[in-house]
Computed example of a mutant assay.
Amino acid sequence: MNIVLHEPEIPFNTGAIGRTCVATDTALHLIKPYGFELTDKYLKRAGMDYWSKLSLTEYASYEVFLQQNRENLSAAGKVGRKLWFATTKAEQTYADVKFGPDDYIMFGKESAGIPEEILAPNKDACIRIPMWGDIRSLNLSNAVAVILYEALRQQDFAALEKKGALHRLQWEGERKY
């Protein structure tokens, strides 16, 4: 999977998203400008010691992102990697679509989301997280986790290690051999 952050503003969110990407073997793509420096202590604190393990690609603009990934992407509903746009303005939810194992999911900056100039020509690829009432949006790192884990669930968590063992003890009724 691929997570794309369009002009992220808050270093803690980007750090937390980077940590989630490492934990799920997901590539992170960052589109400039950022509201922080990649050396920001809050970004590093949120990403903990995982940041060095992150598959990270940076782009000068959305146009550069498209140019460098155009051959990898296809329109929603077509065969190939898709670019999905997470936005509160979408009609369909993230649970309404079928994610592929190499799809890209884009999220916008915390204060404004993805620009409507990007969304308007991509209505069929726009997805949202349902929310109650007049809540504007979820925290960006939470939104990424919700949608990313649904995409991974649809792939039966194929690339993720299956775990279930306790660290110090054993599950009740199991024997340690």
Score class of each variant (00 low, 15 high):
167 H>K: 15
97 V>T: 05
40 D>E: 05
149 Y>P: 00
19 R>K: 06
115 P>T: 11
149 Y>T: 12
128 R>D: 10
80 G>Q: 05
136 R>C: 01
130 P>N: 06
156 D>Y: 09
155 Q>R: 04
142 N>R: 05
131 M>C: 08
14 T>V: 10
118 I>T: 14
104 Y>M: 05
122 N>D: 06
51 W>T: 12
146 V>M: 07
155 Q>V: 05
44 K>D: 04
166 L>F: 14
138 L>P: 05
42 Y>E: 13
95 A>C: 04
95 A>V: 13
140 L>S: 08
157 F>L: 02
109 K>T: 11
10 I>Y: 00
10 I>T: 03
77 G>F: 00
165 A>F: 08
162 K>I: 11
135 I>Y: 09
64 V>R: 05
142 N>H: 14
164 G>Q: 06
131 M>Y: 03
83 L>S: 00
19 R>H: 10
127 I>L: 08
61 S>L: 01
165 A>P: 00
144 V>P: 06
90 A>T: 09
37 E>K: 13
155 Q>M: 08
82 K>N: 09
113 G>Y: 09
65 F>A: 04
69 N>S: 09
46 A>Y: 04
166 L>P: 12
164 G>C: 03
86 A>D: 07
9 E>D: 10
17 I>E: 07
33 P>I: 03
76 A>Y: 11
74 S>M: 09
148 L>N: 08
151 A>N: 08
26 T>C: 09
24 T>E: 10
162 K>T: 15
108 G>K: 03
29 H>C: 03
164 G>I: 10
50 Y>N: 08
83 L>P: 00
136 R>V: 11
106 M>Y: 01
98 K>R: 11
101 P>Q: 11
109 K>I: 00
172 E>Y: 04
176 K>Q: 15
130 P>M: 09
124 D>H: 12
153 R>Y: 13
76 A>K: 05
157 F>T: 01
118 I>A: 02
125 A>G: 12
54 L>H: 05
142 N>F: 06
167 H>Y: 07
126 C>Y: 03
95 A>Q: 15
11 P>R: 12
71 E>H: 07
81 R>A: 14
16 A>K: 07
112 A>Y: 03
109 K>E: 02
130 P>L: 02
53 K>Y: 12
5 L>S: 08
160 L>R: 12
21 C>H: 02
162 K>P: 04
150 E>C: 10
36 F>G: 08
